[in-house]
Design a protein around this nucleic acid. Structure first.
Lengths: 277, 277
DNA sequence: AATACCTTTACGCGGCGTAACGGTCT
DNA sequence: TAGACCGTTACGCCGCGTAAAGGTAT
């Protein structure tokens, strides 16, 4: 019979952990002294102790190891558990590799002294009910007119907005021949009580986007858009819809360009192999 | 000014986490109401919130992000932190890949219904003071004679053994021509008071080994040795010394072969590329 | 009587989720 | 006045390290 200290040395498991394993029923001492409470282990428990260490080093959690030992060493169950862990580990590796890719991309970007390096987030824009107005413009600068029309109509229809509203502008397409820009502006609505010929009420589904929020004038938009587009390519995503902006602080709420806060969103999905054309 | 719930929606950070970030000084509200304690955030804080999410998704811990923001966005420091993280992530990946390799090896092994699958541990056998007796044998079965001599001499010299002792047998080499086996048996000693012509007292340095502990007769040794040798090859290690056994329960302490507990140790080191011969 | 070893209890780490209990706003 | 929102406090997860406070063996 070995006292815990001796068994600890022989098994290379710390005394603390042996007590812990006893507590969770993973490795209980052969015998516990009734009066002193001392734990006594037998040499025959060394193979089990070593097995625990081996499974731990394969990446199994203590709970999983408990299951391993309890389930009888039937080979089928054993193999299943191994294969499940193989899956988990592959996923972890894939995840870390995607992080590593992004980190390396960011390191390269530091060369360009780009102020937005490391600012892009992949997130979901939640499903929401919106009121929308879509029209064709000659220039981006005319977007303000769309907002005016939308706001006026909403006012007339007594549309109720939620406390937290999104003002978004979706770029549907640029037609170089006609020099036209197809833009849709949207506001989140709480309830829509009326109807209008100009406006459309609809539900926008949740979307996965690459998002970058910046502060400042719209002169930065071109650079930001290019940066996000590059980021998507470099990080194994592909475009999955029309890009849009969310105006958190806009000419409607402040006069100073430097105070504008804009979120640039590129709908994305994981890149699927090559597309056969 | 946005209440925490609104800012939570706009930033995609849960209310709980916003409060936590306030607590650790990572993102403090623009303003806190003196009377109600309500936190109020400004839209201008959205870029910072998004940046926090971005850095988190790169794998930075909150503490590291705090440092990021505190350190000024000087590009040099920024790049250093990125490169450090790149290193950490590569190491994590390498570690997971070695685990994955071992798991896959174990899965293949289940085919063979090998009872020792998933029992091998890489551990360090600690540095220790030993008394040793080395001789050449015709057969493994003669190893008992070495132990008898060692024990007798130790008895004569009144060698003091520690409570936790290792009995090891090192296989120095098999010479097929002379049909000789060069074996050294060792016992851990506490103190060595005398000296002997037969025995040697020495210090054995700590060694990294692949270890497998099994219970049963020595008939299993051949299979076990082959399994461990294969495991070492398959898992990118190479032999780094003479293999040895640790006898935890041996003929000296029990008569039943089925009760023997033996630890098979192969000294190893990570495999270094090819060796030019 | 000193020392080495044993016992139990409990806190810390990190990044959250979750819940309990009570005040505030509309 | 209800109900949505805010506040603080605190526990759980997981695998350990670390330490305090006290009993036991030699």
């Amino acid at each position: 019979m070995l006292k815990i200290g001796d068994f600890s040395i022989l098994s290379s498991i710390s005394i603390h952990m042996l007590r812990h394993y006893d507590e969770i029923g993973l490795l209980t001492p052969d015998h516990i002294d009734r009066f002193t409470g001392y734990r006594y282990y037998s040499e025959e428990q060394l193979p089990a102790a070593n097995r625990i260490l081996a499974l731990k080093s394969l990446g199994f959690a203590l709970k999983e190891i408990t299951r391993f030992l309890g389930e009888s060493p039937a080979e089928d169950k054993f193999r299943q558990l191994l294969e499940q862990k193989e899956n988990e580990k592959s996923n972890e590796i894939r995840f870390l590799e995607s992080q590593l890719l992004r980190i390396r991309h960011a390191i390269l970007e530091t060369e360009t002294k780009n102020e937005f390096t490391g600012c892009i987030v992949v997130k979901e824009i939640p499903k929401r009910r919106v009121v929308s107005y879509r029209a064709k413009l000659r220039e981006y600068s005319q977007e303000g007119l769309l907002w005016e029309t939308l706001n006026d109509e909403c006012c007339r229809l007594k549309v109720v907005f939620p406390g937290t509203e999104y003002n978004t502008a979706i770029l549907h397409g640029v037609d170089p021949d006609h020099e036209e820009i197809d833009v849709e502006v949207q506001k989140t609505v709480e309830r829509c009580s009326g109807s209008s010929e100009l406006l459309e009420f609809k539900t926008v589904e949740a979307e996965l986007v690459a998002s970058l929020i910046f502060q400042g004038g719209y002169g930065k938009l071109k650079d930001v858009n290019e940066y996000v587009a590059g980021w998507i390519r470099e990080n194994n995503w592909e475009l999955n819809g029309n890009i849009f902006n969310i105006y958190h602080v806009s000419p409607g709420s402040t006069e100073q360009e430097s105070g504008f806060v804009t979120e640039v969103c590129f709908p994305i999905r994981p890149r699927t192999g090559e597309i056969v054309s």
